[in-house]
């Protein structure tokens, strides 16, 4: 890897990762003393970057910037639970382990998304980028067998509340954070910066 100061980026070329720029930064460690000046240990600072493959789930994460939510459906007629629709997107049906078929669930979400449960919390871990308090919501959809976890960007959540999806189309992060939700009827002016409705 390069020793330049440019923060590391990665491309895949000929089926291999091609990193470019700096991926780790060194800092000196420091001693830890107690009140009496006894050496108790040392700090071990570090700044590094991981690389991660989306693989077969790439369609979900790349479609958010286009205002689309994709799930998958098992269409194997021999599956004990054929017809199961999964959101989160599952590459393989967990029952028969055959490839599941991608399905566009955007319209389903707009039409039926309802808060199943929720939680509001001020507490976060290091590297959190969401505004606090975070309003976690778990969303059920008509015809979908699972319940998606996400976050509400406008208003206060309630069980049974109808919500609609919004998408970070400007400067997308290509992570689950590009998808958020607002109460049904929210005006476009109230959406967070960079977010818009599906169409």
């Amino acid at each position: 890897m390069s020793n330049s100061n440019k923060r590391g980026t990665v491309k895949v070329i000929n089926g291999r990762y091609r990193p470019d720029g700096s991926f780790h930064y060194n800092y000196p460690n420091t001693p830890i003393y107690d009140e009496a000046g006894k050496l108790m240990g040392v700090t071990n600072p570090r700044d590094l970057t991981h690389i991660h493959a989306y693989g077969g789930e790439s369609q979900f994460f790349s479609s958010l910037k286009d205002g689309e939510i994709w799930g998958t459906k098992c269409e194997n007629p021999d599956c004990e639970h054929t017809g199961t629709v999964n959101l989160p997107y599952k590459i393989y049906c967990p029952d028969c382990l055959k490839k599941a078929i991608p399905v566009n669930l955007t319209a389903t979400a707009i039409k039926s998304a309802t808060v199943h449960t929720f939680m509001v919390t001020e507490r976060t871990g290091a590297f959190n980028t969401l505004e606090k308090p975070i309003r976690f919501i778990n969303i059920e959809f008509e015809g979908v067998d699972t319940i998606l976890m996400s976050y509400l960007s406008v208003g206060e959540p309630k069980v049974g509340m109808r919500v609609v999806p919004i998408f970070r189309k400007v400067e997308p992060t290509f992570t689950i954070l590009d998808l958020s939700w607002v109460p049904l009827g929210t005006s476009v002016e109230k959406l967070p910066d960079g977010f818009s409705f599906s169409k």
């Binding site: 991660h52 449960t117 507490r123 976060t124 871990g125 980028t129 976690f136 976890m149 996400s150 689950i176």
Partner: peptide, 22 residues
């Protein structure tokens, strides 16, 4: 799940707390 849950606040308590709420 690092793709579907962890970026949401990096706070595991929150992922359980929705169950507590229900």
């Amino acid at each position: 799940d690092k793709d579907w849950e962890t970026p949401l606040g990096h706070i595991y308590t929150g992922y359980y707390a929705v169950m507590a709420q229900k």
